[in-house]
Design a protein around this nucleic acid. Structure first.
Lengths: 339, 339
DNA sequence: CAACTTTTGGCAACCGCTTGCCGCACCATT
DNA sequence: AATGGTGCGGCAAGCGGTTGCCAAAAGTTG
């Protein structure tokens, strides 16, 4: 396979040009703007390029065109299965559009997020911020100089895809009350999380409307390991059901409750959020507010690419709301007469 | 914040040079080769750069230096939790070294893998191939022109980090025989998987040595959804215990067995492999051959970076074997007297 | 057939940064 | 004072493409 030119390095556009007997500009056009050159010429160039195994350097291309054909995805924690579904969604969609995904873990830190945004401004054509920890002002500033889409972080300052957790909370409440629960506890996630605030607010408002007795524990780190503390705290409130910030935490609670002999759902019903990998096979399977996370990632990419494309810019949607639904599994049940 | 120069675009090295009253070359050196310039000059330049909010373009830098400071991670399926852990490991290590990770899903296709390797040769400084589907010859060819490290795919042609599954299989067999099992079934993964072949071979050899009755079913796609077919096939063999290609498949089997009323571990013991997220909280919790997957990712990065660094090149390790151990949980138990 | 358009390809100037080479200044030797 | 280092900064030639502008060739039209 002819992989190297006379100089021993990868073939460049010049090598192709020389071999095809045309100027480099013609090669460039033949490859990226086919209509601009004569068909016969183009075919000859394509043939030579194929023979030489020529691959245009995206670096060089980016230098003159100013585009990198890469977009960065910033997630607070690659460890969290929730983000894996986003990663998967964006990855798919980006690949389909011929973009490369740059994955960055911002370690739940707003500073690191801002820093990355700054450092990579030249590296990526656009950014997708999943569950951003930035302030509205920071997002505004960032969005003024680069293409940005946020996921689960509504802000008037950048196009957003939000998952309709409020809607899901209503469904969960509906479900729990229909099972006879009246004392319900909200198990909170990170204080800096926008969606946590939203979920809590909806929970509180809706519970009040229904005359339920509510309590709240937290904040907890959204990891299974925090489940023990969360379970203990929730148990102390005397609630018969919990709506938990996310599945990770809920699964952790399940384990702790079992250890303590608190039966789920007989003694305590648990509703998680997200329907992550594992929610269907934990013990008992988790009733959860299912979010189309992967789809959210895909939509975010579409919105971002639309922003990038001068044709659509401005006309594109600024907000996408992803519908949710309650997936009922084994972790919720009727309130037991004894409790 | 001064983010743009007179021309309205992001500041370049020239803007900095002009403002600092030096040549661009001096700026370049001050920033990337500090010892080469006078301290006072450097500090002045640094100050101006900070003021201007200057960020060097990695594209341009790459063009002249020939390096991109990015490495690509190719995984067969981003969906699979096993790869999550690898992604996490490489991500961490790469970030620490100042590299960017390019994540690519090759969709279990050797062709796509080869294609990516080719297309990205200019985009990445090196490649990490997780569970590569390529042939030895293809790996050899790729490794001849670019830095490559493989994970779980031993081949003399590129440095590799392998997870010692054979060792784990021995431990699993030991465990099962000590529980009284004599009829054991191996539930196979993808035919194209190198580690699957390895595991099976070890299983067979070791079982023979111990005089066990073995059977084999498969190949199955390593997904929970294939668990049903796998469980049915395994049940038919009359085995009292299964060693399963990976946890995903094992978890799927667990579900199916429960549906069918086959009790785990009373009627059937199950040993998975990898100890992925979820293995500890499925029902029953899965006994599994735990692999330090994340660490494998980290080691792979170290080996790759060593390869890239002219100082270490050649002297670096070509093979790293990650130790494994059996994690015993609820899915294995003594063979029941009735079976 | 002249005049005019359109198509097609080449020239050359970048894009932003790196780096080999050169030369000036300044200091230490002899 | 002449000589030789050494430190430091500038010049300019790339790296591999893209693209505006121009001119030659080919096609159209009355």
């Amino acid at each position: 396979m002819a992989e190297t030119n006379a100089r021993g390095s990868a073939p460049t556009i010049r090598d192709v040009a020389a071999l095809a007997g045309v100027a480099t500009s013609t090669v460039s056009r033949a490859l990226s703007n086919p209509d601009r050159v004569n068909r016969a010429t183009r075919e000859r160039i394509e043939k030579v390029a194929a023979e030489l195994n020529y691959v245009p350097s995206s670096q060089a291309r980016g230098l003159s065109s100013g585009r990198t054909n890469a977009i960065a995805l910033l997630v607070p924690d690659v460890t969290n299965p929730f983000y894996f579904d986003i990663i998967r969604g964006t990855q798919n969609q980006l690949k389909a559009a011929g973009y490369t995904q740059l994955l960055v873990d911002t370690e739940e830190s707003a500073e690191m997020e801002a820093d990355t945004l700054q450092k990579m401004q030249r590296t990526a054509d656009g950014f997708i911020l999943a569950a951003s920890r930035l302030t509205d002002a920071q997002i505004l500033e960032a969005a003024s100089s680069q293409a940005i889409v946020t996921i689960n972080r509504s802000s008037a300052n950048a196009p957003t895809v939000v998952i309709d957790t409020p809607g899901a909370v209503v469904q969960a409440l509906e479900h729990l009350t229909s099972l006879g629960h009246t004392r319900i506890c909200y198990v909170g996630g990170p204080a800096s999380s926008w969606s946590n605030a939203k979920r809590w607010k909806t929970f509180e408002d809706e519970s009040r409307d229904r005359g339920l007795t509510t309590s709240r524990v937290g904040p907890f780190t959204p990891k299974t390991t925090s489940g023990a503390a969360a379970a203990d705290a929730a148990a102390r409130t005397g609630a018969t059901a919990c709506i938990v910030f996310n599945d990770l935490l809920a699964i952790g609670m399940l384990q702790r409750l079992r250890e303590r002999g608190i039966r789920v759902p007989e003694d305590m019903s648990i509703v998680g959020c997200d329907d992550i990998f594992g929610a269907d096979f934990c013990n008992p399977p988790l009733t959860t507010m299912a979010s189309p996370i992967e789809q959210a990632g895909r939509v975010a990419v579409s919105m971002l690419l639309a922003q990038l494309d001068p044709l659509h810019a401005g006309s594109s949607r600024r907000l996408a709301v992803m519908p949710t639904h309650l997936t009922v599994r084994g972790s919720t049940g009727p309130v037991s007469p004894t409790s």
